[in-house]
């Protein structure tokens, strides 16, 4: 419990900064919707002539591009990019910061098992992500009620919003796993930024090609907003895939960390 409180305190500030920036980004992006909705109305008729593969390439259905949820799906990509960076950062630094700051021996000589240490740290990280998501959800709901032009499916909206949390959990798990596999991480930021951007770009170019198999590789494609809007549900295959990644990564982390050599 002490470890949990200590960890939470050390993340408090960065969590607050991340939460506020994410909420700010959300508000900013939402505030652009009214102008776009006006533009789109005029353009909608022209769109009929679009060839099918091109429509697929840009990931938005013809009829939803101008809609509120269509716009939300588009802007959500950038919100999820930021969220993924936050989660991956958190995950990668969770265990490595003790080594970098030479506090690992202090921590690990305390009368707690490594598993307990790991559990407290993971819990603190999850709490930090939950905080961020509460901020994001509040901002998104608030802005949605202000800028919406038509009634939209609230359940789809909530499901898309919550997929941020699921995506973050996946990247948190990947981050912790990477941090116990790579022997010595000097700079957390370069590892996490590199990984997240690699997945992000894979997602963008994967969707341009309409490649189904590609979707399994990058978590950014697990929660496809277009599918959620249409069905008001997550795709079971990808939900399982995401849960599988999290479970496998966390199990591996417990196993590796409990017998890992700690460089001091």
């Amino acid at each position: 419990m002490n470890i949990f409180i200590h960890e939470w305190k050390s993340y408090r500030k960065s969590t607050l900064i991340w939460s506020l920036s994410l909420a700010g980004l959300t508000i900013l992006l939402f505030s652009m919707f009214p102008a776009i909705a006006r533009d789109a109305e005029n353009f909608k008729r022209l769109l009929e002539g679009f060839p099918e593969p091109v429509r697929k390439a840009v990931g938005l259905e013809l009829d939803s591009i101008a809609s509120f949820l269509g716009f939300y799906s588009y802007m959500f990509l950038y919100v999820s990019l930021c969220g993924a960076i936050q989660a991956m950062n958190l995950g990668t630094s969770l265990l490595t910061k003790e080594i970098r700051e030479k506090t690992a021996d202090f921590l690990l000589t305390k009368p707690v098992t490594r598993k307990q240490v790991l559990t407290s740290k993971l819990l603190a990280a999850v709490v930090s992500l939950i905080m961020t998501n509460i901020f994001f959800l509040t901002a998104a709901n608030l802005m949605a009620s202000i800028v919406k032009t038509e009634s939209y499916s609230v359940s789809a909206f909530i499901l898309i919003s919550i997929s941020l949390f699921l995506l973050q959990l996946i990247f948190l798990a990947i981050g912790v796993l990477v941090s116990v596999i790579i022997p010595r991480i000097k700079s957390v930021l370069s590892v996490s930024l590199g990984t997240v951007f690699a997945f992000f770009m894979l997602g963008i170019f994967g969707s341009a090609a309409g490649d189904e198999a590609m979707r399994y590789i990058t978590p950014f494609k697990y929660f496809d907003p277009a599918y959620i809007v249409k069905n008001s549900a997550y795709e079971p295959a990808f939900l399982t895939m995401g849960a599988g990644i999290i479970l496998a990564a966390i199990l591996a982390v417990y196993y590796i960390y409990s017998k890992r050599d700690i460089a001091i």
Partner: peptide, 11 residues
């Protein structure tokens, strides 16, 4: 023919 904002969304 497409408005600029939409072009951006289309990527």
């Amino acid at each position: 023919a497409m408005p600029k904002a939409l072009q951006a969304i289309m990527g």
